[in-house]
Write a protein that binds this DNA or RNA. Structure first.
Lengths: 152, 152
DNA sequence: ACATTCCTGACGGCTTTAGTCAACTTTAAC
DNA sequence: GTTAAAGTTGACTAAAGCCGTCAGGAATGT
């Protein structure tokens, strides 16, 4: 389980999609504006999300992205896994050859931790996040915002 | 809570110290040989561990490093915190200004996760790790090893 | 046709990681 | 008191990953 800002961007973007789940396709430009993420970077992230089967895309005018399944069926862990193709927290990638030909001293520790983190994030769906008061509060503020100018 | 290979190196090295807790000072050269970590890199890590008060150093011949307190008093979380001076998993460093002037949508999520990871790692001491059969098994193999040549 | 939007690949700056090298200080042992 | 073992510090490099930009292309509704 690798946790970087990349994964955080992805979860934020997916949460934005979840907030507009029943309102038709959402363009990346909208997400970029609302969440303050560069459009081109979003394009990269969504390419992976699409390959991971988490979102559906609609081309052409009026197009955009939609969640492939309802928010209650998508967990945070799935999003992060789709973004970071390498998932293991261990040094050896599960090969247990971290140290020469043998497992390193702390191999088991990182494996345990990895499982814990995964379980935590797997227990949280987008629907869970949407229902949080804090999220709704921030979201409503974003709706009423003056659109900023978007580069490219 | 930032989890990188850097932190893993540090925990592995500290575990090595814990395994030799009652046997006098341990040189970095020994750790480098046993754990397959570059000596110069260990020097950097132990400078931080020393500043963090986790280890004591003894200079001169016969010198080396010792745990500053018994293994049962040192948690994995402390080690990682000492190594990565920045601890927060959130984008804004607790400032809650992740997105312009307001907290980003997922601020709370990362804060929660951060706490979870910290609690997990704070619940594991070096003594816990030492008592694990797997660790002892790997450790005993390392003791009987032919010393490899060390560069510089 | 045309504008909109997704899609793809290449590229560059930046930070972090991992490791190297060199010089220095302390101190035990001879 | 010399010497050698060890820690201490700082500068440096190479590689990787992150973040973002740019340029073009493909699909598609109007």
């Amino acid at each position: 389980m690798k946790l970087t800002t990349k994964g955080r961007y992805a979860v934020t973007a997916m949460l934005d999609l979840a907030l507009h789940f029943d309102k038709g396709a959402v363009t990346l430009a909208d997400i970029a504006r609302r969440q303050g993420i560069s459009l081109s970077y979003l394009e990269q992230l969504f390419a992976k999300l699409r390959r991971g089967g988490l979102v559906d895309s609609v081309r052409g005018p009026g197009g955009g992205y939609n969640l492939a399944v309802p928010p209650s069926k998508i967990t945070v862990a799935e999003i992060i896994v789709a973004i970071n193709e390498n998932i293991d927290a261990t040094r050896c990638g599960g090969e247990k050859n971290c140290h020469g030909d043998q497992a390193c001293l702390t191999h088991q520790l990182w494996e345990d931790l990895s499982v814990r983190i995964y379980e935590f994030l797997h227990g949280i769906t987008l629907a869970d996040l949407v229902s949080k008061p804090q999220v709704q509060q921030v979201a409503s503020r974003q709706e009423s915002r003056v659109p900023a100018t978007i580069t490219r």
